[in-house]
């Protein structure tokens, strides 16, 4: 019973915080509302005995949101509700799509005859996940690793505007490199 109440409260929180993302008029608040939504979901996942996933969700999403907050402020500064802000277009259409998808999904959810749980819950969900990722689902981990590595490189290439020729000169022999801020190691 307590679990059910916790789940319900956290679910309401997650949705409310998610809605707040698009209604508050400050970038910082929008970002941290989204973080609140993620943390509420992490709470749900924790209540569902998926400790590792819950903690990792909170960890990853906090880092993401902290960085995202900086980007938000960088590109559209507007602290603490100082300025009413609407950055919407096509609000009505978007709302229609959102409501339609929600209605469709909900209808499905409540009409489907869900089966009973198959098998008994694993005592240690963390162990179960680890065994899967390092065993039966190894391929997922391998692909994820490659995708993340590609993301690091692609992201850096997209975001930076200085290549090695900018740093080391046309013959790549300029030492020290021309950087706006020198790093901490001799190059």
């Amino acid at each position: 019973m307590l679990t059910d109440v916790t789940l319900a409260v956290l679910g309401v929180l997650a949705v409310a915080a998610g809605g707040a993302v698009f209604t508050v008029d400050s970038m910082a608040r929008a970002t941290y509302a989204l973080l609140a939504s993620f943390l509420a979901v992490a709470g749900i996942v924790l209540t569902l005995d998926l400790t590792y996933l819950a903690v990792v969700t909170a960890l990853m999403m906090t880092m993401e949101m902290a960085i995202m907050g900086v980007f938000m402020v960088m590109f559209m500064m507007n602290p603490g509700g100082l300025m009413p802000m609407t950055m919407m277009h096509n609000t009505r259409g978007a709302a229609a799509v959102g409501v339609a998808v929600f209605a469709l999904l909900t209808t499905g959810i409540w009409t489907i005859d869900w089966p009973d749980a198959r098998g008994r819950p694993s005592r240690d969900s963390t162990h179960q996940l680890a065994e899967a990722l390092m065993g039966s689902h190894m391929l997922v981990m391998v692909v994820v690793a490659a995708a993340l590595f590609a993301t690091i490189i692609a992201g850096t290439v997209l975001a930076t505007h200085r290549g090695r020729y900018d740093r080391f000169g046309p013959n790549l022999d300029a030492r020290p490199p021309r950087d706006p801020i020198p790093g901490g190691l001799p190059r």
């Binding site: 998610g18 698009f22 959810i109």
Partner: peptide, 23 residues
């Protein structure tokens, strides 16, 4: 069902945001 409804609500709100925002 309740939890899935929350999930659906999150997806709906997220879609609304993704479609309506300019930034």
């Amino acid at each position: 069902e309740i939890l899935l409804t929350f999930a659906a609500a999150l997806i709906g709100v997220g879609l609304f945001g993704a479609l309506s925002q300019q930034s």
